[in-house]
């Protein structure tokens, strides 16, 4: 799950970066970048964090 989380987090960056090439509209770019940030935050908080909690030293 950690690696899926990393992939999703990076995907968020890719979404934001691609907005530079697919449109010249500032509004559309803002929407895409915000979506990218949301995807990245989901990757960190929704996927990576729960996965790491299973490996707490006193839970092993």
């Amino acid at each position: 799950m950690t690696f899926v989380g990393l992939a999703v987090t990076f995907l968020g960056f890719v979404i934001a970066f691609i907005s530079l090439g697919v449109t010249d509209s500032t509004a559309v770019r803002m929407g895409m970048v915000l979506a990218g940030i949301a995807v990245s935050l989901f990757g960190i908080m929704g996927l990576i964090t729960p996965a790491y909690q299973k490996t707490w030293i006193w839970k092993r």
């Binding site: 990393l6 987090t9 990076f10 968020g12 803002m30 970048v33 940030i37 990245s40």
Partner: peptide, 25 residues
């Protein structure tokens, strides 16, 4: 200037989407 705010958002997207992944790996 809305464009400036988008540029700043792009910086944030790079921080959470790229820098985090790079640091983690």
């Amino acid at each position: 200037d809305a464009g400036q705010f988008v540029a700043q958002l792009m910086g944030v997207a790079t921080l959470v989407g790229f820098v985090f992944v790079m640091s983690y790996v």
